[in-house]
Design a protein around this nucleic acid. Structure first.
Lengths: 220, 220
DNA sequence: AGTGAATGAATGAACGCTCACTCAGTCGAG
DNA sequence: CTCGACTGAGTGAGCGTTCATTCATTCACT
């Protein structure tokens, strides 16, 4: 591995001198940072945060141990950054899809749920970090729940309240509780998907959850 | 906090030397094991599993570091034991309450949910270990999901299927998915309760979850 | 164009601390 | 005295972090 990264580096330096002149900033500063984040996601997902060594991450990213500290001030900051980046991305995607402006609250919730499971379903390692590693300490949980997580719950809740106002949803329900239920159900779908040996598509589960959420399970 | 537990220990050792001579078998064999398990639950809940030192657990339990290893072969085994004991206890309580023999599947699910949240609601530290610490690594998750956890999911699922057979629940639903949804919702109630600053009763949430689970949120 | 000084990204060996676990010894009961 | 539960200082491996060093690249100045 130090062999590996050395080789890689050697190749780049030997074979791409022209490429260099073509792209003068041949190693965009974000590129190595990116590589480290991806590597960390993989390593954390496979070994768990506490069992992962910074050296493992560096090796996976093809850089030296010390390089990690040029981009992140600690191992913990790497974990935080993984979370932050993903939340940013998700929000950006939600904006692009204009979910916010849907008029039917039921459809809006359905789209939110879909996006939730699509994102996690698209990157198993990232999903493991989100569903398992990020929950591994109350400290993280509290920090994160203060941040993007609580905001997400709030989005669900607000959407539900809009629906209540519009007479689409039962008005006798506590929106706070309702939003937790929906989130919990989706969250469990994701966790189960990770742990399952069977490879199935995660996003379609959103529809099943929404069906029951909206209509319940009673036959009556 | 280390100050706190230190103080506690100081008091015990200074004030209870007579108590010792009064009770000749002052430490029934199971008693110390018990003390260590309780201490570990507290320590894990406060600092997280990986940040907890065996020395912390020993101090909290009022025993020497080495004593811990007379009862458990590793730190990891302590965590396992906390889980195992709690699951055993829960199963025992379910037996005692004769939940298994209830005839209405809806009522049965309600009782299961109640028991679930009652147990976690009764011991915040234990709840933290269950909701947060035990999820902190895929390794644990996989081991545990193989064990009692999967069995619990199965109990919910079987109960639901009974209800489908009896025509009480919609027959067009996948029981496996349904059971995950219910579990996920309850699980989220527990996690939120832990993280919340507000002190409310957890068990009543079971009814709210069941209401929505059974009837859905649609106004129609 | 050619030079070499300055820059700073990258390196990885080494450091220093933490902590799970051990074991030689103490203590008290029978 | 014996036995075994218990003790806690000690140990050594593991690992996050640092930093002296390397070297490709840039640039000021001829």
């Amino acid at each position: 591995m130090s062999v590996h990264s050395f080789t890689e580096r050697g190749l780049i330096e030997k074979n791409l001198p022209t490429a260099r002149s073509i792209n003068p900033a041949r190693l965009p500063p974000g590129d190595k940072r990116e590589a480290i984040l991806r590597a960390a996601t993989t390593v954390f997902a496979h070994n768990g945060y506490f069992n992962s060594k910074v050296a493992d991450i560096a090796r996976e990213a093809g850089v030296a141990d010390g390089t990690v500290y040029l981009y992140f001030k600690s191992k913990e900051e790497i974990l935080h950054s993984i979370f932050d980046r993903s939340v940013e991305d998700a929000i950006a995607e939600a904006r692009k899809k204009k979910i916010e402006s849907l008029s039917d609250p039921r459809e809006k919730l359905r789209q939110i749920a879909h996006l939730h499971l699509e994102r996690l379903g698209a990157d198993r390692d990232l999903a493991v970090v989100f569903q398992v590693e990020l929950r591994g300490s109350t400290k993280f949980m509290e920090e994160f729940s203060a941040a993007g997580f609580a905001e997400y719950l709030m989005l669900i809740r607000t959407t539900f309240e809009e629906g209540q106002q519009a007479g689409v949803f039962r008005s006798d329900l506590n929106a706070k509780v309702v939003s937790k239920i929906l989130f919990g159900a989706l969250d469990e779908m994701a966790t189960n998907w990770i742990l399952s040996k069977r490879r199935y598509k995660l996003p379609p589960m959103a529809d099943q959850v929404l069906d029951i959420f909206l209509n319940g399970v009673n036959a009556s």
